[in-house]
Design a protein around this nucleic acid. Structure first.
Length: 572
RNA sequence: GCGGAGUUGGUCUAGCCUGGUUAGGAUGUCAGCCCCCCAAGCUGAAGGUCGCGGGUUCAAAUCCCGCACUCCGCACCA
């Protein structure tokens, strides 16, 4: 496999640690895997990636952004299906202590396993005596669950169980009603959230690629299932995507189709316009991070590996030096699963209404109930009776009366005279529905890593991070050519001026000029400004380009604008 | 969790088998000299209780045991 002593990824991790992009957290206690800390450069890079994402995904569409709690009570994740789906039944061989996914192992012994099989049933199956450990043949088992959500308690009462969110999405569903209200009833409605999520991985490795605590950028796009058009689609419909659709994944095909967004929709490879739009946007966004198109692909999730809420999911993967194809974003069509689930559990109506273009006239049957008569006949039961009666469908009531001449409410017989049926013409002006959801979801740490991975270059014994200028953590470095007081003074003036203009600049006068260029290259500073003797005569400086090593002389007063023009990115 | 390998200044590492004086080097950092446009050179300095805990021994980075963590495989990754 890897014959070099040190892979690029190893060197990149070393660089990230040494220069303070990020490192494994809690080093003084030996480190805990699945947790990282970010230093200054990492924070800045992360921040710029987030800003770029906001430009691509939020502002442009007029979406709204929220920030909801990291911890929620049990009931939220019970409703969302996570409590049932975010756990794996595990059985442990009591002899060799190997652990297996219980359902997988039972299937090997030809047991029919239903989704969400209970521990009790697993135990029953296992104890029938024919299930033996594939490792040592032993037949005694310990059965349990491994819940991959972090559990905690809320308040002083330990029975009030809560969980750290495993995705930011649920917050946008639980708060949907208010956000919808605040957005003045807009549909389609895009709600974005950037924040931390937590997954108690069994054994996370691969450094920053698989974390127990990580950051996500997610959008829940709520749309009308009867009007699923995406108004932005035309902007990307000719964009070519590299896709491995479900049927190819099933066949084990690894090479992607190249297909335009338009075609993918027509052929049904992507089922939803918004999903297709976000996939295209996602590709453009990643390209902007410096990830070339041939290092990107969309990989369909087949039903068995899809999340419990998903009707279609594409993983947006990038090719990384050491890890191969790694998912950096997931694009899921969640249907109305989440809102419906919360609606059911909370009994709060999550449906929204849109005005109909033309009001619809509907004829329907209405019951005129003779309240007086009923009250006279059943004075005690009146209230309950009316409640039940009002909930009944008039059509059904009429049928019952036509058939038997009476209506039975519990054990009470109501004579047909108490109800009069009339046909009513009603004008329906709105349509109510539960919105469907398309969700693009990005892992920030993975994006940071992917950006660095693709920015990493070596030139002789020097390392250069060719981070796109608009993402560079440090945007400019100011150097006096030599450490002479006059040059130093001038340099500091230039440096101060750049900072005032909002350019993230550093000043360095230690060591030779070449060493300082090298130091700057290693952390991806795109422009190095050198103050030399000529500066003192004509107020010009040289601007040295990190990638080409070319130098340009610029008049100091034009410098900030010159740099800013190179540092900005064209609008998406 | 299992199997294998490993853990020594900021970084990379020598030393461990064959226990013995202030744990060596490279690189980086800082200060000074130099004044030079791509990690040049010279001088000096700071920085390590050798992962943690225990044991053996007159003496442990070195031998033994336990633990933690990391890396590589296996399993897991909704």
């Amino acid at each position: 496999m890897e014959s070099r002593k040190e892979s690029k990824a190893d060197k990149l991790f070393e660089l990230a640690r040494r220069r303070g992009f990020f490192w494994q957290a809690l080093e003084i206690y030996g480190g805990v895997s699945g947790f990282v800390s970010f230093g200054e450069l990492g924070v800045k890079l992360k921040d710029k990636i987030i800003r770029l994402w906001r430009d691509y995904f939020i502002y442009k569409h007029g979406f709204t952004e929220v920030d909801t709690p990291l911890i929620s009570p049990y009931i939220v994740f019970e409703a969302s299906g996570h409590v049932n789906n975010f756990k794996d039944p595990i059985i442990e061989c009591l002899k060799c202590h190997k652990k297996f996914r219980a359902d997988h192992l039972l299937m090997e012994f030809n047991r029919k396993i239903s989704e969400g099989i209970s521990i009790e049933n697993i135990e029953k199956e296992v104890n029938k005596g024919d299930v033996s450990c594939p490792e040592c043949g032993n037949k005694k088992w310990n059965v349990g669950y491994f819940l991959t959500m972090f559990r905690t308690t809320i308040g002083p009462y330990s029975e009030n169980e809560g969980f750290m969110r495993p995705e930011t999405a649920q917050g946008m569903f639980t708060e949907f009603k208010r956000i919808y209200e605040v957005s003045r009833g807009k549909i389609p409605l895009g709600i974005a959230q950037i924040g931390k999520a937590f997954r108690n991985e069994i054994s996370p490795r691969q450094g920053v690629i698989r974390l127990r605590e990580f950051s996500m950028m997610e959008i829940e796009l709520f749309f009308d299932p009867l009007n699923p058009r995406c108004p932005f689609l035309s902007q990307v419909e000719d964009e070519e995507l590299r896709i491995i659709p479900e049927d190819l994944v099933e066949k084990g095909v690894e090479s992607p189709l190249k297909i335009t967004v338009k075609e993918a929709l027509i052929k049904g490879i992507i089922k939803q316009e918004w999903l297709a739009y976000f996939m295209a946007l996602s590709k453009k966004f990643l390209t902007k991070l410096g990830l070339s198109e041939d290092k990107q692909r969309f990989h369909a999730k087949i039903p068995s590996e899809r999340a419990h809420y998903s009707a279609q999911t594409y993983d947006h993967e990038v090719l990384l030096d050491k890890f191969g194809w790694v998912e950096v974003a997931g694009h899921a069509y969640r249907t109305d699963y989440d809102l419906s689930s919360h609606m059911k559990r909370s009994s709060i109506d999550m449906s929204v209404s849109v005005p109909l273009e033309k009001p619809i006239k509907v004829k329907h049957l209405k019951m005129n109930i003779n309240m007086k008569k009923i009250k006279e006949t059943f004075p005690d039961k009146f209230n309950d009776l009316i409640k039940v009666l009002n909930k009944k469908n008039p059509e059904d009531v009429k049928k019952e009366i036509d058939a038997s001449g009476v209506i039975m409410i519990e054990d009470l017989k109501l004579p047909k005279e108490v109800i009069e049926f009339v046909d009513v013409d009603e004008e329906i002006k709105v349509r109510r529905f539960i919105p469907h959801v398309v969700e693009p979801s990005f892992g920030i740490e993975r994006l940071v890593y992917a950006t660095l991975d693709h920015a990493y270059f070596e030139k002789g014994d020097r390392t250069i991070l060719k981070i796109p200028p608009y993402l560079a953590p440090i945007q400019a470095a100011v150097f006096p050519l030599v450490s002479r007081e006059k040059l130093q003074e001038k340099s500091i003036t230039v440096w101060e001026d750049l900072k005032k203009k909002g350019i993230d600049a550093i000043y360095d006068d230690s060591g030779s000029i070449g060493r300082r260029y090298a130091r700057a290259d290693e952390i991806g500073v795109p422009f190095a400004i050198t103050i030399d003797y000529q500066t003192l005569e004509d107020d010009t400086v040289t601007v040295r380009n990190r990638d080409t090593w070319e130098q340009k002389r610029i008049i100091i007063k034009d410098l900030p604008d010159y740099l800013l023009s190179l540092l900005c990115f064209s609008d998406p």
